[in-house]
Design a protein around this nucleic acid. Structure first.
Lengths: 351, 351
DNA sequence: ATTAGCACTCAACACTTTCGAGTGCCAAAT
DNA sequence: ATTTGGCACTCGAAAGTGTTGAGTGCTAAT
């Protein structure tokens, strides 16, 4: 059932040609562009065989072949040689990604920008999954009567905050008490163990009448939960319109429509990640091809993802979405390098 | 030079028909769909006249007429009757815009979402212009050695913050001194009078060696300037792909390409706004049509904007971008209502 | 001023033809 | 047992050809 050497060669040639031309490739074209030692007739036989095995398919009877999902999969798994970037490319990426970075979010935004422009496809990055994180500090800062800023510092030094409205009559001093009480009770606690009840019970001994606290408690809780939320940066949707793959408007519409649905892609990536963790996969990158992507509207696309780390426990994803016919070797080398730069930079930020 | 009544009627009918059908409208079709008391031949004469005057044009010799930019302009200026929203629509918009709002930014995000979905076009909202704002409070909160959060509170109660890196050896107490010194010196100062020099001089009398302060000064300054930055929320790009107007892929590409250029549209809206302020225009909304929009890639579009207010001095914009052939009356009524809801809600937030 | 009528225009559509790159298969060659 | 040249066949894409119909402008009659 495994492919012999020549079949591999043929498949590789077909994918390579199809990626560059977006035209079904026939036996004759194949001979012309590559130096096979056999004739076109032999290739025809090989191609017929490959088709029977499901690696390639014909758009219609009298056309050349295009790779099937399975064909791309084989290509990515065993035929692909990953590009090496030139020194200039490395430098440019490094410069762009590390440009005026103060927080992880800056970094992610830069990374998506650079990746999208360099690849010519869509790029995305997700904020770290904070589920495995714990609360390091919590400060409530009075801004003016009735308004306060809840600052949540998570392990790994990530800071999130949220402006909240509180009862007007709570004073600076009272708020300070509340703040220290909550922080004392919750700091060090894993984020997913924090519930409305934990927050409330942290204020049991407080001198302030419980009835006044409800809103504060709720807002503090919401702020913590909001810090947990996955945000996603997305860049370069418009680039897809330049690709012939999306000349058929309905495809572009489906793709962009799906991408615009808030949280849908983020949720999917997150799921993907946890299933990967289960299966114990060790690769630095991951490729999903066509139908393998369980998202309506992305079945004509491929999705390359990689994982960056924040500290020892936290991680997030960076990805590229392009046509199935994407330049895998370039994309993979670029995303891998971006991942490295991001990891290095995060280390600097959180050292 | 002004249009007589019948010409106005004809122009209005042409725009109305073209907006709904996206097909050049001819004399016969006009008669069929509207009850004119004259024959098609008369309309032909009127249409020839309207064409000579520049209000309508022919895509080709034997086709019907479509409105020119000038025609749309006339339509918007004097022919348009603005829709009134149904009670359900009002309710839906109010609900969506005011859903879980803590800050102005939440509100703007909600507003763009609602507007884009309700109109079916692209919607955008810009954070308020803070140039006329002044600094109300500035707090620097130590997070851990080497890391601090600069919290900037502007007039009108808008809060922005930024995580910064500072020299490791600055202590909590020192930072507190710095923070109060800077706040004392700068609070009440108009944002655009704050420069690196003003910030630096606020720390003249401080006990901390000047050499250590440079980074803190710079970061605080950057944080303030960042608070001034105009952010823009954009929603619904993908909806344009469903409109026949953008079936020609190159148009969609141009449009989305321009919109994706960071700051370009925001800068333009800002400019527009200040020129409007100069000319003393009092309308609650403003319409830019086709070539009137000085942005490459938007010349097939129209741009409806309105202004919301934060407190007495601050303002920002909300807008809708659609095809020239947009349903002006609906869009205008919707954007006007959104403006009202946003204004009311901001008043509640900042009261 | 309005209108009926007519000759004219031209995009859109349907239909045909041609072309060529592609295929599968078979019989001969290695 | 492969490989290969050859050949008949397929079928989409491109180019050419009518036909149709909604549109126009113009003129002469109302």
């Amino acid at each position: 059932m495994a492919l012999d050497d020549r079949k591999k060669q043929v498949l590789q040639a077909i994918v390579d040609d199809y990626v560059t031309t977006y035209e079904p490739v026939g036996s004759k074209a194949l001979i012309e562009r590559h130096d096979f030692t056999v004739s076109s007739a032999t290739l025809r036989n090989e191609m017929a065989e490959l088709e029977r095995m499901g690696y390639i398919e014909k758009p219609h009877t009298s056309a050349g072949r295009i790779p099937s999902d399975k064909g791309y999969r084989e290509y990515v798994n065993s035929l692909l040689k990953v590009d090496t970037l030139t020194e200039e490319e490395r430098e440019e990426i490094t410069d762009r990604v590390t440009d005026s970075v103060n927080e992880v979010t800056d970094l992610l935004r830069n990374a998506t920008n650079a990746l999208s422009e360099k690849t010519g496809y869509i790029s995305l990055a997700m904020t770290p999954r904070f589920k495995d994180s714990y609360l390091s500090q919590l400060k409530i800062l009075m801004i003016e009567p009735g308004k306060a800023l809840v600052v949540v510092v998570l392990s790994a030094g990530v800071v999130k905050d949220r402006l909240v409205r509180i009862p007007n009559f709570i004073t600076d001093a009272q708020m300070f008490d509340i703040s220290t009480a909550v922080e004392h009770a919750l700091s060090g606690m894993p984020l997913d163990e924090i519930t409305l009840v934990t927050v409330a019970s942290s204020l049991k001994g407080s001198k302030i009448p419980e009835s006044l606290l409800n809103q504060v408690i709720f807002e503090a809780y919401t702020a913590i939960k909001q810090a947990e939320r996955l945000d996603m940066y997305l860049e370069g949707e418009h680039r897809m319109l330049s690709l012939p793959d999306f000349h058929e408007l309905s495809r572009a519409r489906d793709l962009l429509g799906t991408l615009s649905k808030d949280g849908l892609v983020a949720g999917y990536v997150n799921e993907m990640e946890s299933s990967k963790a289960q299966s114990g996969s060790k690769d630095t990158y991951m490729v999903r091809i066509g139908q393998e992507i369980a998202l309506e509207g992305l079945s004509d696309c491929s999705f390359v993802t990689t994982t960056y780390n924040v500290g020892d426990t936290l991680s997030g994803n960076i990805g590229v979405i392009g046509p199935k016919r994407m330049e895998y070797s370039k994309v993979i080398s670029q995303i891998n390098f971006v991942r490295k730069v991001v990891n290095d930079e995060i280390r600097k930020l959180t050292e």
